[in-house]
Design a protein around this nucleic acid. Sequence first.
DNA 1: ACGTCATACATCGGCACCGATGTATAGTCC
DNA 2: GGACTATACATCGGTGCCGATGTATGACGT
Lengths: 176, 176
Amino acid sequence: MLELPILGFLHEAPLHGYELRKRVAALTGHIKPIAESTLYPAIKRMEKAGWLRRDPQPGAVAAPRHVLSLTDEGRAELMRRLADPDPLDISNENRWFTVLAFLRHLADPAAQAVVLRRRLAFLEEPSSFFYADERPVSAEEVDDPFRRGVLVIARATSRAELGWLRSTLAALDAAG
Amino acid sequence: MLELPILGFLHEAPLHGYELRKRVAALTGHIKPIAESTLYPAIKRMEKAGWLRRDPQPGAVAAPRHVLSLTDEGRAELMRRLADPDPLDISNENRWFTVLAFLRHLADPAAQAVVLRRRLAFLEEPSSFFYADERPVSAEEVDDPFRRGVLVIARATSRAELGWLRSTLAALDAAG
DNA sequence: ACGTCATACATCGGCACCGATGTATAGTCC
DNA sequence: GGACTATACATCGGTGCCGATGTATGACGT
């Protein structure tokens, strides 16, 4: 969950922990804030995995900063995660948005299109939130105004995303 | 995450674990499947908390079933969680949808309206995914087609939900 | 009679994340 | 010069969730 944005931001520029945290907060913080006590263990984990380097920078401000930068292995890991995302990255909107935020780093338009097509397939497969007798219930059939809201909102989102996906895929196919 | 749907479904009818799992899967399973090894510990936890009762039903099928039903305390807990949801239930779309799926059980229209207004306030407060120089970046300004997609989709969702929220709130206010 | 599958419940080890708390330094205000 | 705040990194215990695996029974085909 946290590792993809860390890889993504560090691919764009070396950062120290505090700045990294601010960027992650800007990206997804309004949905789910990220605690400091989650970030630093994640950094350690990823350093141990060989994905990033920590260079002490005993500079001007406050406590000594560690400048974080991606290793070649870290870059490879980022590309692997972008090219072949976890199923949850496809189905969960927040995680999908994180993939989209860094997908441009996957330089090849064809590879980008493959990822978009996975999301397209997910959105096109029939699914609902509510069922009666094994059959999906449409918004029009639901009495409960709150459950109807869920369906109305989900439908609007789906429509907007399908439109965007199709036009973007057309552009990518033309480019490739 | 799991406890609210369990409370909600058991409020509607006593169920055994397997059936409960199927209902939870129908509600949110297409986004994030729920493992059996998560459900049963959750049930135990909630039984220990006094929210539900497990009555063995050594009936016809397969392994002995436990029929799960809410206690009065469980019902009170459900009402508390619906009336005063966790901040994450408001900001995270999937969790918000779960609240909506059971909000009708909060019988009082005024109490329902309070919850909807919290979501309204969340959606109305300006927020973005991407920032440049501390300033939010609008879809029109973004070069990257993928980041533009995030903003376009989020905007469509927000518009649809704001419309639904305002009309539903009007109806609730008229009813109260 | 036997293998296979679906149903139903259960345990265990591991991991990501979090809240609480701690430490240390630089800047700001009075 | 002392109180306070913001920055920056860190540890610890607890919790919720998961994958792997196990156990037991009824249903069904052959």
